[in-house]
Amino acid sequence: MSDSPSFSFPPPVAGDPTAPGRKEDHIELAFKSQAERGNLDQRFDYEPLLAAHPAPGSLTPIDWGGKSLRAPLWVSSMTGGTEKALIINHNLARAAGEFGIGMGLGSCRSLLYEDDRFQDFNVRPLAGPEVPIFANLGAAQLQSLLERGEADLVTQLIDALDLDGLIVHVNPLQEWLQPEGDRFTVAPLETIRELLRALPNLPVIVKEVGQGMGPASLRALLELPLLALDTAANGGTNFSKLELFRSDALARSAYGGLTQVGHSAEEMVRQVNRIVEESPREIRCSHLIVSGGVQDFLDGYYLTELSRLPAIYGQASAFLRHAREDYLSLQRYVATQLRGLELAKAYLRPRP
């Protein structure tokens, strides 16, 4: 027999029965997993050494008008007053309560004078008392209410649904392009100011509806005592474009260019930052909701970290896709997004 030393492999590690299959997967998938340099996300520095894997639920809570968000995520206003609204809103409310995120209802206009669709919006029992949920009315409806001295209908609506405040959506282009649209006879800014005077204790959020707004409008809103300004930027669902699809061929041809104007979410965040830096003493708006083209947690993380105002991010169409199905689909989507956000905060550093 040879006197040369013998060698034997160590026994397989107990508790890892999937190792052979996993390694086979790695071999088969290696060629499909080649990264292209041109596809690198240039918004972040990846820092893999500086944190352990985050524990579920490790995001820092955020104060939101006296309530607390467990994650910086907002369900942007979507639908109301239709047959499909009930299941969508109820699924979204369940998710808001389970994950501690905020929610804006779709337009509550149909409830101002009748309660046929009350259950579509009656989501507080599903969400629970802890999370912020806001009603939603258009500037045109508020103008009419204020002119008739009926501001109390807003508080009655909010009290009936046990909500926390009001979102005002400002949508002059949508109203113009909507076949049944209203017409503004005063500037929306004046309507918002009058609302704040009439209901000074009402938490108010102001948003556009998918095209964003420019620096003069942003500055005017930042100087008002709002709970939040919602960017509702160009890049997500554009309600002006949506209304054109409902119009005739002549209107689509004549007004199509209007759907291409607007501002991106990143542009608006940077504009808000400049205004905050230039005139910090004039800023009375408390928070920013970054929405419009926010596709996932990476977009949300980057844009909220970029903001000089305390910021959360909102999504609409992504929630809507899952909320139309069974609740488990929506539940899994939200859980995945929040775990992704926790990973991003642990290992990614946004570049300026």
Rank of each mutant, 00 (worst) to 15 (best):
S76K: 13
N91Y: 02
G81A: 13
I88C: 14
L73K: 03
A96G: 01
W74K: 10
E83V: 12
A96F: 02
R94F: 02
G80F: 02
V75G: 05
K84R: 14
N91G: 00
S76H: 10
V75R: 03
A96T: 09
I88D: 08
V75C: 11
N89E: 03
I88R: 12
S77D: 06
E98T: 05
G81Q: 12
I87F: 08
R94S: 09
R94N: 00
M103W: 07
V75Y: 04
I101H: 05
L86I: 06
W74L: 08
N89M: 14
N89P: 07
I88T: 10
T82Q: 06
T82W: 11
E98G: 09
A93G: 03
K84Y: 05
S77E: 02
E83Y: 12
G81S: 07
H90I: 09
E98K: 13
E98H: 10
W74R: 07
A93S: 02
W74A: 14
I101S: 03
V75Q: 14
V75E: 13
T79Q: 06
I88A: 12
F99D: 04
E83R: 13
W74G: 03
L92M: 15
N91F: 01
G100D: 09
G97A: 15
E83T: 11
A85E: 10
G102E: 12
T82P: 00
F99G: 10
W74H: 15
I87T: 10
I101C: 00
L92T: 11
L86F: 13
W74D: 09
A93W: 00
S76T: 03
L92C: 15
T82R: 07
G97M: 05
I88H: 05
G81P: 08
W74P: 03
F99I: 06
I88K: 13
E98L: 07
T82V: 11
S76Q: 07
F99M: 14
I87H: 08
R94E: 06
T79M: 14
T79N: 14
L86G: 12
L92W: 05
W74S: 09
T79I: 12
V75S: 09
N89A: 06
L73I: 02
A93Y: 03
G80N: 04
M78N: 03
E83C: 00
M103G: 04
A95L: 01
A96W: 02
F99T: 04
T82K: 15
E83N: 13
I87Q: 15
M78P: 04
I101T: 06
F99S: 10
A85H: 11
I88F: 10
R94C: 04
A85Y: 06
M103F: 01
T82F: 07
I101W: 07
I88V: 14
A95H: 01
I101F: 01
S77K: 09
N89D: 03
A95W: 03
L73E: 00
T79K: 06
G102Y: 04
S76V: 10
L73H: 04
W74Q: 13
R94H: 12
H90L: 09
R94W: 05
G80V: 00
M103A: 06
A93Q: 07
L73V: 05
G102N: 04
A95D: 13
G81L: 01
G102A: 15
I88W: 11
T79H: 11
I101Y: 00
A85K: 14
N89G: 11
G102C: 08
N89I: 05
R94K: 10
V75K: 02
G80T: 02
A96M: 06
I101D: 02
N89L: 00
N89F: 04
